[in-house]
């Protein structure tokens, strides 16, 4: 089994293989589409550097979206301005300040990393 490593998280030492990246990105792309992300849409991503950031970015691009990254260490006021400026409908973040800053924005849906992984119950459509 030749597992190609595509990323190493220097904080945790965890490695992401190419296969994992592809698989997680594919799942995340489906989740983004289910929540209405369309070609040309801007999607905010506010995550610490690491595999989740890579997967999210990949997924947004695969869904035809435009990635609008936000460094998580910005102060709330700056975050708020950037969120406002983006005009994004969807934000991917688990960062407290970013969630607060999105409160009075035009962001409709905030997705956590768990949402992207489809780990929240995904329900069957009505039959």
């Amino acid at each position: 089994m030749d597992e190609r490593i595509v990323m190493v998280d220097s904080g945790t030492g965890l490695k992401l293989t190419e296969e994992q990246l592809d698989e997680r990105s594919a799942v995340a792309t489906v989740q983004l589409r289910r929540r209405g992300v369309r070609s040309g849409d801007t999607v905010l991503i506010c995550l610490r550097v690491g595999p989740d950031l890579l997967v999210s970015t990949n997924a947004v691009i695969a869904a035809g979206g435009v990635v609008w990254p936000l460094p998580p260490d910005l102060d709330t006021a700056t975050l708020r301005d950037r969120i406002h400026e983006s005009g994004a409908r969807v934000m991917i973040s688990d960062v407290r300040q970013a969630l607060d800053a999105a409160e009075e924005s035009r962001v409709r849906i905030v997705m956590s990393v768990a949402d992207l992984n489809g780990s929240c119950p995904s329900w069957a459509p009505p039959t």
Partner: peptide, 11 residues
């Protein structure tokens, strides 16, 4: 609750 999709209505 689990499985709730929160959709924030903008102005």
């Amino acid at each position: 609750i689990q499985g709730e999709l929160v959709w924030r209505v903008p102005p």
